[in-house]
Design a protein around this nucleic acid. Structure first.
Lengths: 139, 139
DNA sequence: CGTGCATCCTCAGGTAACATGAGGTGCAAG
DNA sequence: CTTGCACCTCATGTTACCTGAGGATGCACG
């Protein structure tokens, strides 16, 4: 039960085998044992940690972020406030990203509309989509 | 007027000097001349093309996308319909991204709320933010 | 016992879109 | 003549892995 190979660890943590090795290289996993044959051996705490990393990555945190988060959780009494602050900071980043995406969609939609109106059926010499794309956005 | 150095080309197109060279390496610029001293020489058509590339990149198209778009615009009669199709396809990608971002924000917000409720002032043994982060998302 | 396939190991290099730095040239101003 | 900036090429760094080479091991089957 407490001696899984990397394949099982990967499956149970939702990572690929390469990713599990990568996280170890990055120092996110500590004290991964080796069997006499040289193969890595994982226990349930390692799986848990892998899941934590995987989940944080899925939530958009960078490896460096995860390192900090692990630092907070590795402390004797995990500093949930620090974790919350990182989460809040990350929410702000997400909001900025969404604003940018919304703006892009606006631009692209109006570009597409240009074409739809000008040349819904076949090409039209009136369509300015290509010129519009070449126009500078802001400066 | 029709013989700019790379610095001017960069400034007038909204790229950095390194980026201008990069786009040339990528084959997005054609027929950039050289002065006798070996320096690149740009004309207004080049500037226009650089702006086009820069704008497309800002809109989220990949270099490969831009290559296709340039193909469409380089044609004797630019195929605006092809350009529109790429724009529409890209809008779909943006929608997927936004949905993911919204989901992330949801998750992170509820994580943060967990902590705000449990330990608004100081750390609380009730707060589960760290455990919540470790919980697997889907599988 | 041998064969064959899956899994594991360690490097090394690739991906996207540039940024950065080393080491060297060209050219104008003081 | 020297300072200093803009330019040149080439190499490497960035992020978070993926892919492949080349080789060892483990397990099942006949």
């Amino acid at each position: 039960m407490a001696g899984m190979c990397i394949g099982q660890a990967a499956e149970r943590s939702g990572c690929t085998v390469a990713t599990v090795r990568h996280y170890e290289d990055e120092g996110l996993l500590k004290g991964i044992g080796r069997a006499p044959n040289g193969r890595r051996v994982y226990g349930w705490p390692d799986i848990h940690r892998l899941r934590f990393v995987r989940r944080c990555r899925d939530l958009g945190f960078s490896i460096d972020d995860v390192r900090s988060l692990l630092g907070a959780t590795d402390a004797l009494s995990p500093d949930c406030l620090a974790v919350r602050d990182m989460a809040v900071a990350h929410i702000d980043r997400l909001r900025v990203m969404r604003a940018e995406i919304d703006a892009l969609e606006q631009s692209l939609s109006s570009l597409a509309n240009t074409c739809n109106e000008a040349c819904a059926t076949g090409r039209s010499s009136v369509c300015t989509i290509v010129e519009d794309l070449a126009a500078t956005a802001s400066g």
